[in-house]
Computed example of a mutant assay.
Amino acid sequence: MSETSLPDILRSRGLRLTAQRQLVLEAVHQLGHATPEQLHTAVREVAAGVNITTIYRTLELLEDLGLVTHTHLSHGSPTYHPVGEDQHAHLVCRDCGAVIEIEHEVLAPLATDLAKERGFQLDIGHVALFGTCGDCGEAK
């Protein structure tokens, strides 16, 4: 869904479009992958009065509306990104912290096996695999 559909989605649920909701969604689209703290910093550049609690509540609402999703790329805060992006998984380097996106097709065989053998539906958009990137592996 595009960010321009936010007013219609909110109206259909009996909710109002607020400047904060629009700003948070725009920041998610602008930054691509961002923690609530990073989004807070971006939104505060435009609207200084927006607090971190508003960011968290808005992200929760936007996720409930199906406009954003999150994944955990570290032990810290979740990372949010727009739902409209192609579904992908993340490779996270434990040494340098690099995050590399991989196409969902890489995990498709695993998803198929899990569905067939265990009836489990894998949400690839929430998958983060931790290890060591090629650059850090070579440095060792």
Rank of each mutant, 00 (worst) to 15 (best):
Q20E: 15
S74Q: 10
H29Y: 12
R13V: 07
V46E: 12
E60Y: 09
A48R: 13
P36K: 13
L25T: 02
K116I: 04
L65V: 09
T41Y: 05
V68I: 08
G134W: 11
T4L: 11
Q22T: 05
Q22M: 07
G66H: 01
V28F: 10
T112V: 10
H33C: 04
A128P: 01
H88L: 01
T79I: 15
G131F: 09
A128G: 00
R118P: 00
H90T: 04
H40K: 02
T58E: 07
V43H: 03
A89K: 01
L39W: 08
C93S: 07
Q30C: 05
A115W: 08
E26M: 09
T112F: 02
S77T: 13
E103A: 12
L73K: 03
T4E: 14
A34S: 06
L122P: 00
A19Y: 05
T54Q: 14
T4Q: 12
L67P: 03
P7S: 06
E3D: 09
D95P: 01
G49E: 15
L25I: 04
L65I: 09
A128Y: 13
I9C: 03
E85N: 11
P78E: 12
T41Q: 12
C96K: 12
H72V: 07
E101L: 13
I55P: 14
S74T: 12
D8P: 01
H70V: 01
V46K: 13
G131I: 10
P109V: 02
H81L: 15
L17S: 10
T58M: 02
G14M: 08
C136N: 08
Q38V: 04
R13L: 08
D123Y: 10
R57M: 11
A111P: 10
C93A: 07
A47C: 05
L91K: 09
A115P: 03
L65C: 10
I55R: 03
L107M: 05
E138P: 00
V83E: 13
K140A: 13
E45H: 09
N51V: 11
Q30M: 08
G131E: 11
A89H: 12
E45P: 00
F120Q: 09
G131M: 06
A47L: 13
I124W: 10
P82S: 12
L17K: 06
A98L: 12
E85S: 06
P36A: 15
S12P: 02
D64P: 00
T18Q: 05
A42M: 10
M1F: 06
P109T: 07
I9F: 06
S12G: 05
R16C: 05
V24P: 03
Q30D: 14
T71G: 06
T35Q: 03
S5T: 12
T35N: 01
E37W: 06
R118G: 01
L31M: 06
E117T: 03
G76P: 09
